[in-house]
Design a protein around this nucleic acid. Structure first.
Length: 503
DNA sequence: AAAAAAT
């Protein structure tokens, strides 16, 4: 179906056309008329199928009646509020909104933390119809009375299930309490757990549900592979796969900020153009890293789940789960960074013996079997004792050899001859990971390394109380917990890996 | 046992 048939105005159609789009995707064809009708909506569609335009375009159409070139701020109250779980995603939605409003006198801006507040305040003072924000900084503006939300007609929760989970729900409730009761509420995501839908019922009025394909389903354009491998050999296998599959670019997902930093350091040492992105990096570095990945300068983006959702990197061919995600929903989102807008992609997950549970949860959520395979030269050390290797009996006999045989020895020889200095060192890949080395337990524990970003460290240098503040307040991973997060959450969601949980 | 999000 074409966008013109969906009841959008010429100014919007022109912007859409200039961006090179003519046909609406299924989620857009279904959601746009419903959003135009003013109904509340819960919309589920796979990753990379155009959810952002599915809410932005009809919102612009609805706000068109307010389009006004006047410079009087009073003429431009916030009419639409779009919330995102990460700053980078907020930024991306903002870029889209800017492009779609090109021919309409509607103003939009992006509000998130980690950057100077003054330009945001100045924008808000001038008057803005459309605000795209992350919750923390938005609340900051609310507190400082630099934003008014009493004229908001439409609220969008992008990545809605994430916005409603325990880490965000308090902020979202607070923000919603400041919005008019009479408003439209739109929830978009590729994944919706049943408990999230129940929770959504609290604040939606007679919502319509739109589903394109089953919720939680992965994009069929993405080929999914699971390789069983000992954790100590993951890094060697990753290097091998990058070479073997000639990965021009890849996002490699890690579970923690520390392992992301560690892996990017190791990959750089191995000669890969790798950079890490995670929440402890300064926002300027996060943005710079993402941009140099998009430009192709960085080949391997080592990321935490900060990059799991929403980010649109055109023609990204590969995603690797270096560590299986804690929640199976995040698997769906992670691999959704590839295979976008009709393109194909490959997602490879490296599964160590202690990650069988996550693998099972992923199979269950996505209702597909992902038989673990092995790569030649990277088989488990002792395949005969599957019982005590940690790989559950469920997977015994399910593994098969990789359809594409590995040429590990030859590849390594070739690389060594190109870089003779490398052969001087012991074969790193043969060594178990640090955490597995037995001598580690006999040593006195080392002081934890300071992994906080430079800005935090220099703040502490200027103000010695800074560190004490952290110690007093209590912290997780070097971050001060905001007051409200230490209160008992109003709603506790069930654990993710509960066996027999109805999906 | 995690990450994210305000300073």
């Amino acid at each position: 179906m074409s966008f013109a048939e969906l009841g959008l105005s010429p100014e919007i159609l022109r912007a859409v056309d200039e961006l090179g789009y003519s046909e609406a995707t299924p989620i857009q064809a279904k959601a746009i008329p419903l959003v135009l009708s003013g109904r509340d909506l819960l919309a589920a569609a796979q990753t990379g199928t155009g959810k952002t335009a599915a809410f932005l375009l009809p919102i612009l159409e609805r706000l068109k009646k307010f389009a006004n070139p006047s410079v009087s701020p009073a003429m431009h109250p916030v009419r639409a509020l779009i919330l995102s779980p990460t700053r980078e995603l907020a930024d991306q939605i903002g870029v889209n909104a800017k492009a779609y409003t090109k021919h309409l006198p509607l103003r939009c801006t992006t509000i998130y933390g980690g950057v100077n507040m003054d330009p945001q305040t100045a924008d808000l003072r001038r008057g803005i119809e459309i605000v795209i924000a992350t919750p923390g900084r938005l609340l900051d503006h609310i507190q400082q009375k630099t934003i008014q939300l009493n004229k908001v007609d439409v609220l969008v929760l992008d990545e809605a299930d994430r916005m409603l989970d325990m880490g965000f729900i308090q902020d979202i409730r607070k923000i919603m309490s400041l919005l008019p009761k009479q408003r439209q509420t739109l929830l978009f995501s590729a994944t919706f757990a049943p408990e999230i839908k129940r929770l959504a019922a609290d604040f939606m009025h007679d919502p319509q549900t739109v589903e394109v394909a089953r919720q939680n389903s992965t994009n069929a354009q993405v080929e999914q592979l699971v390789y069983a491998v000992d954790s100590g050999r993951k890094r060697a296998l990753l290097s091998h796969l990058i070479r073997e599959r000639e990965m021009s670019q890849v996002i490699v997902f890690c579970k923690t900020k520390i392992s992301a930093d560690q892996l990017s350091r190791d990959l750089k040492r191995d000669g890969h153009a790798a950079e890490a992105i995670h929440g402890d990096k300064a926002q300027s570095a996060r943005l710079e890293t993402l941009n140099s990945f998009k430009s192709g300068e960085v080949k391997v983006l080592v990321a935490t789940d900060v990059a799991a959702r929403g980010l649109d990197i055109s023609e990204l061919p590969f995603v690797v789960n270096y560590e299986m995600p804690n929640s199976p929903e995040d698997y769906v989102h992670r691999i959704g960074r590839t295979g976008r807008a009709g393109a194909s992609g490959v997602a490879i997950s490296l599964m160590s013996p202690d990650e069988v549970k996550q693998h099972e949860a992923i199979e269950k959520l996505t209702r597909q079997t992902l038989p673990p395979q092995t790569v030649n030269g990277f088989e488990r050390r002792d395949a005969s004792s599957a019982a005590d290797s940690g790989f559950g009996s469920r997977n015994a006999g399910r593994e098969r050899s990789d359809a594409r045989p590995a040429r590990e020895p030859r590849a390594e020889r070739a690389e060594r001859s190109e870089r003779p200095e490398r052969s001087e060192r012991p074969e790193r890949s043969e060594r178990p990971e640090r955490s597995e080395r037995p001598e580690r337990t006999e040593r006195a524990p080392r002081a934890p390394r300071d992994l906080r970003d430079a800005a935090t460290r220099s703040r502490e240098q200027r103000d010695p109380q800074e560190g004490l503040k952290v110690a007093r307040v209590g912290e997780i991973g070097g971050r001060i917990l905001p007051q409200r997060q230490r209160e008992v959450p109003a709603l506790l969601l069930p654990p993710r890996y509960k066996v027999n949980q109805e999906r």
